[in-house]
């Protein structure tokens, strides 16, 4: 009786596989080489950039070029067409985000909130950024300034000469300059005062959409950055 064929020894299988691969080594390398290259490329493209992500997740955390600050203002002086005298919002306090790009001295404002401390010609007023997206507004970024883009919204209880009831007044983008420029400005510019260098047109409107012609203009507007928000 012929002996039963012996079961292949487990120790021999790797040897057979190794022999098989060796016999077809050219084909194996030809197939695996491009696969390895493509796999490496895919992994490097898909892998999350852990190191950089950590710093980009929230630009406001520990960012020396971003701060929420408090401000105070003696108010906005407004000339309304047809009104014989200048009008004032009265003193205003509030907060605003200031940010600047690395190396720039110009600061961009966002998330403006402010309200009048006293009831003056416009009744109670509230300040906010004008609704809408920032518009193309060219300015010198190397000079210290605060940019309100797309503008400022002043919500007024009443606007003399316009009507009785809540009105919204809008500016176009505003650039405020320091009243006393300093050689090496610090950020945030605590205790510094900024002002509009020239008149700013004022428009009535709603939801950031204005009327067809200005109702007047802002002749005077200063604000002082007082402390962190």
């Amino acid at each position: 009786m012929a002996p039963e064929p012996a079961e292949p020894s487990p120790a021999r299988s790797p040897r057979r596989l190794s022999a098989l691969l060796r016999r077809h080594r050219v084909a194996v390398v030809a197939v695996t080489a491009p696969l390895a290259v493509m796999l490496a490329a895919t992994l490097s493209a898909a892998a999350p950039p852990f190191a950089s992500d950590r710093t980009e997740q929230d630009p406001t955390i520990d960012n020396p070029n971003y701060r929420r600050v408090a401000f105070s203002s003696a108010g906005v002086t407004v000339e309304i067409l047809g009104q014989p005298d200048s009008l004032s919002t009265g003193g205003v306090t509030g907060e605003v985000d200031l940010a600047r790009a690395e190396g720039d001295q110009s600061m961009v404002a966002a998330n403006l909130t402010g309200s009048s401390d006293v009831i003056a010609d416009f009744g109670q007023v509230y300040f906010a950024m004008r609704p809408g997206v920032p518009v193309d507004y060219q300015y010198d970024t190397s000079t210290q300034s605060i940019i309100f883009n797309p503008g400022i919204e002043i919500q007024a209880e009443t606007v003399p000469g316009l009507r009785n009831g809540t009105d919204y007044l809008y500016t176009q983008p505003i650039r405020m300059l320091p009243t006393a420029p300093v050689a090496d400005p610090e950020f945030p510019p605590y205790e510094q005062t900024f002002t509009i260098p020239s008149i700013v047109m004022l428009w009535e409107g709603a939801d950031g959409v204005t009327g067809s012609e200005p109702i007047g203009f802002i002749s005077h507007f200063e604000l002082t950055i007082t402390h962190g928000g």
């Binding site: 009535e204 709603a206 009327g211 109702i215």
Partner: peptide
């Protein structure tokens, strides 16, 4: 025309 009490909106 214009929206009531406005200066030339939604004409």
């Amino acid at each position: 025309d214009t929206a009531l009490a406005s200066t030339g909106r939604d004409g």
